[in-house]
């Protein structure tokens, strides 16, 4: 049993003026091993808060999260993180960035080298090991970030808008890479994104989250991630099924945004 589970997770932030904000309320789910879950929702819906709780960077005010039945109380190597651009160590070469985890854990140099070389080949960066990270393009930097996270062989990979800063073309290529890695490694992946299309394409499960209080509004089981492994990506993304789901979710989020604007209007 290696499920990632959340039991009635709640998060209330205290404000300096004495008030409080309910960032998450009663969030529960059970994610089986090897699934890829995408989190989507308007800003303020608590998706990044949820990811940080799963990573162990934040402790929930109520409820609990656990991996393989063990409660998560802090950051750990069983849960790798991939952030938006800028989380690489620019003082280290590509190779040293990827080997950072094994190095910290005292893995022998020769073994680290093998892990690093294999991973660089997997993400399509063979031969770039001794380059400085700032010499690479944004897409290549995110490839390094993926490889760095995989070097510790985590059970779960948590991604916080990993492709958010990339241009549209690079982004589509990287989506393909994420699906490939998911398929080849069999890791459980949770990915936070702002893009409806990305959430639909990458998630074989998708949570649309709603704000005030942050919660899971609707859940989807989707076929596109598995199809994306073999099918033509453009055909898939322009297929009637894909477009129908996209419009459904877009109007759902649109309604939420309207609601937020409306309630703000009342306050003003």
């Amino acid at each position: 049993m290696q499920n990632l589970t959340a039991n009635n997770v709640g998060m209330i932030y205290k404000l300096p003026n004495g008030g409080s904000v309910e960032a998450l309320k009663d969030v529960s789910f059970d994610l089986e091993r090897g699934r890829i879950l995408t989190l989507l929702g308007p800003s303020g819906c608590g998706k990044t808060t949820l990811l940080n709780i799963l990573a162990g960077f934040l402790a929930p005010t109520s409820g609990s999260v656990s991996l393989s039945g063990k409660e998560i109380r802090g950051p750990g190597q069983d849960r790798g993180m991939v952030f938006q651009q800028g989380a690489l160590f620019e003082w280290l070469s590509v190779e040293k960035n990827v080997g950072f985890g094994p190095n910290m854990n005292g893995v022998p140099v020769a073994q680290t080298k093998k892990i690093v070389d294999d991973l660089l080949a997997t993400v399509g960066l063979a031969g770039f090991g001794d380059k400085a990270v700032y010499e690479l393009s944004g897409g290549m930097q995110q490839r390094v970030a993926l490889a760095r996270c995989l070097a510790n062989d985590p059970e779960v990979i948590l991604m916080d808008e990993p492709l958010g800063a990339l241009d549209a073309l690079t982004r589509e290529k990287m989506q393909g890479l994420i699906l490939k890695l998911w398929n080849e490694t069999g890791k459980t992946i949770i990915l936070v994104t702002h893009s409806v299309e990305e959430a639909l394409f990458l998630g074989d499960r998708l949570f649309v989250m709603a704000p005030r209080p942050g919660r899971i509004e609707r859940e989807y089981e989707l076929p596109f991630a598995k199809m994306g492994l073999t099918a033509n990506v453009r055909e898939l993304k322009t297929s009637p099924e894909f477009i129908e789901k996209r419009e459904e979710i877009l109007s759902l989020i649109w309604e939420m945004e309207e609601e937020i604007m409306g309630s703000r209007g009342e306050v003003l």
Binding site: P75, G76, M81, F83, G86, A87, F89, M104, R148, N152
Partner: peptide, 28 residues
């Protein structure tokens, strides 16, 4: 950057390792 420190924690770095391999070079 917070994301650098958090990435290092998730990769298994101890506080001392964070200081020597992340905070120090970042502050140089």
């Amino acid at each position: 950057k917070l994301s650098k420190v958090r990435a290092a924690y998730s990769l298994g770095a101890s506080k001392l390792q964070i200081l020597t391999y992340v905070i120090l070079p970042n502050a140089l």
